[in-house]
Design a protein around this nucleic acid. Structure first.
Length: 588
RNA sequence: GGGGGUGUAGUUCAGUUGGUUAGAACGCCUGCCUGUCACGCAGGAGGCCGCGAGUUCGAGUCUCGUCACUCCCGCCA
């Protein structure tokens, strides 16, 4: 018996043909006499029929069929009478009358039904992922993922990029995320690290003269998980020589254009708008602004720095900010709703959430109204575009707290106010990131992007004197409020690289031990180069409108980084540990 | 490391003020049924109430601890 068609192929034009289908029993309807089965494979559903008048022996055997049995069936395609056409099914005009039945395998009762509207908990689904993955809805996601990968390869191949593999067993580096370590048996007591990204290797490939490199590659970071973060994830990794920001961003734009076109048939408008990091924070509070709606933040620090309202005035005096956001027409928010929003901004360390409702007569209803002079009220009203029926929220604190709390509040309000069109895909480039920030815990500067990112040339002098005021040649691509890609122009000059390491507080011995091979390579004839990496999982997640990255990874891990299907990780045997010269010491 | 949520039948859930034998739907099993497509009808099986202590005459319900899953903060160059 050999498969002739899939469960989506057959239609009226095939009536009369003898066909062989192979797949799973999706649902059965046994009438005692005639038996109907919705027969499923990767491609779709076809109704197959066992009729005693057609073939008694096969019909008798078909009584034992149950959900998820695996069958091969041979039969004749017949047209359904007009009143029995199922218009909900792609193959609803026909059915297959079965003459020959092969039962390849039976199936026990499954822990949950194979249906699109899942009602099993995620833990149950992950423990039975092979079954979960039978759901057509999930299969669609992985088909989309495949198409996206193909689009990436086709596009980059067309642009002369070479796919070159880089090692997974590599060197642990300081800076950045916690490494996954792999013990070396041959070198007792020594460890490899799994790559957080192929960053240094792709730079070395540029130095080798490969000019244009890409890879769809797994990366590993041992950090805590989130709805959009897994310990292993996939990057579309790209690097180009002799290219500046515009060329790299151009390639990136061509790439997303191709992916969106091929996978969901959407046209992405290019060039994609660019805003600076500073502008993003000013207007939206976050460095990954959701551009599907307006709802901009307004800085009223200048207006309130001399106000009688000490909470605002003293914050500005200490170098903080007071910013406002106008939720148009939301003066109807209840006390409870405002309390909930206050609690929400508390997550981001905001100590409070001041508010003003504009009453019908245009006056302020607000616990803080009495602190402001009419002139101040007028200036604030103008700045925030206050109108009757609006509610304006204020946060006063240091810039980080103000921006993070109001930026996230902005996203929450947009959702609550239903300002988000779920069919929109709004891209934006964020550029001119600061080079460093100050790590309070470690009492040193740390790189915002990574230590190989080039500063702007005019800022070189500040490396030793004023590192916090250097901007880097880094850029992030943001889609619907999610960072889906990021890259930079790299340092290709040994001296500059050493000055950046020094600014990060690394001693010469430190950076020579950890990055000596890179520094040496930089003086061996390194071309100017730069690149970008996309988070493929996140991109697919947004493309397929999924709320969790786990839904776009075939075998994902739980929040505690365990695999419920295989029960990894697990303890190693004493023999394994001995071979690796390892000893496990557990805390109490 | 911290905060929130969830955990009862195979699955999704209900379960009153602490009170007799813990329910429903779907699924499963048996029988009947020749045009269904969420087939129908009749009957049936199925429970470590996450786990462990405690309070109580009595705990699914209250207290404490613990585990798992999940969302978030920190963390993630």
């Amino acid at each position: 018996m050999r498969r002739t068609h899939t469960c989506v192929d057959l239609s009226k034009k095939d009536v009369g043909q003898e066909v062989v289908l192979m797949g799973w029993v999706h649902r059965r309807r046994d009438h005692g006499g005639v038996i109907f089965i919705d027969f499923r494979d990767r491609y779709g559903l076809t109704q197959i029929v066992f009729n005693p008048e057609n073939n008694k022996e096969v019909h008798d055997r078909a009584h034992i069929l149950r959900n998820e049995f695996v069958l091969g069936v041979k039969g004749t395609v017949i047209a359904r009478p007009d009143d029995m056409i199922n218009s909900n099914m792609q193959t609803g005009e026909i059915e297959v009358m079965i003459d020959e039945l092969r039962i390849f395998n039976t199936a026990v009762t499954l822990p949950f039904q194979i249906e699109d509207n899942v009602d099993a908990s995620e833990a149950t689904r992950l423990s039975n992922r092979h079954i979960d993955l039978r759901r057509p809805e999930l299969q669609k996601t992985f088909i989309a993922r495949h198409k996206a990968s193909m689009a990436v390869r086709n596009y980059l191949d067309g642009q002369n990029f070479l796919d070159i593999e880089t090692p997974f067993l590599t060197k642990s580096t300081p800076e950045g995320a916690r490494d996954y370590l792999v013990p070396s048996r041959v070198n007792e007591g020594q460890f490899y690290a799994l790559p957080q990204s192929p960053q240094i290797f792709k730079q070395l490939l540029m130095i080798s003269g490969f000019d244009r490199y890409y890879q769809i590659v797994r990366c590993f970071r041992d950090e805590d998980l989130r709805a959009d973060r897994q310990p292993e994830f996939t990057q579309i990794d790209i690097e180009m020589s002799f290219a500046g920001e515009d060329e790299i961003m151009g390639v990136a734009e061509g790439l997303v254009k191709k992916v969106f076109k091929d996978v969901i048939g959407k046209e992405v408008q290019t060039p994609i708008n660019r805003i600076t990091y500073k502008e993003a924070l000013d207007k939206y509070g976050l460095d990954k602004p959701d551009m599907r709606f307006e709802l901009e933040l307004k800085d009223i620090s200048e207006i309130v720095k001399t106000t009688g309202f000490k909470v605002f005035a003293s914050v500005v005096e200490k170098g903080g900010l007071v910013k406002a956001i106008n939720a148009k027409g939301c003066a109807t928010f209840s006390r409870k709703e405002i309390d909930d929003l206050t609690e929400y901004v508390g997550i981001y360390k905001a100590k409070g959430l001041a508010w003003v409702k504009i009453k019908e007569d245009g006056s302020w209803q607000s616990p803080i109204a009495k602190f402001f002079t009419p002139e101040e009220q007028a200036l604030i009203a103008e700045k925030t575009d206050m109108e009757v029926g609006d509610i304006i929220f204020f946060v006063a604190d240091n810039p980080k707290v103000v921006n993070e709390s109001l930026g996230n509040l902005r996203n929450l309000l947009a959702e609550k106010m239903e300002l988000i069109d779920e069919d929109l895909f709004e891209f934006v480039w964020v550029t001119d990131f600061p080079m460093f920030d100050y790590d309070e815990h470690e009492k040193r500067y740390s790189a915002i992007h990574h230590p190989f990112t080039a500063p702007f040339e005019e800022d070189y002098d500040k490396l030793e004197t004023d590192p916090l005021n250097i901007n880097s040649r880094a850029y992030d691509l943001v889609l619907n409020g999610s960072e889906i890609g990021g890259g930079s122009i790299r340092i290709h000059d040994r001296a500059v690289q050493e000055r950046v390491f020094a600014a990060l507080g690394l001693t010469e011995d430190d950076y020579k031990e950890k990055f000596g091979f890179l520094i040496d390579a930089l003086e061996s004839g390194a071309p100017p180069h730069g690149g970008i990496a996309f988070g493929l999982d996140r991109l697919i997640m947004i493309l397929c409108k999924q709320s969790s990255i786990r839904d776009v990874i075939a075998f994902p891990k739980t929040q505690k980084a365990s695999c419920l299907l295989t029960a990894a990780p697990s303890f190693a045997s004493t023999d394994q540990l001995d071979e690796l010269s390892l000893k496990v010491v557990l805390d109490d």
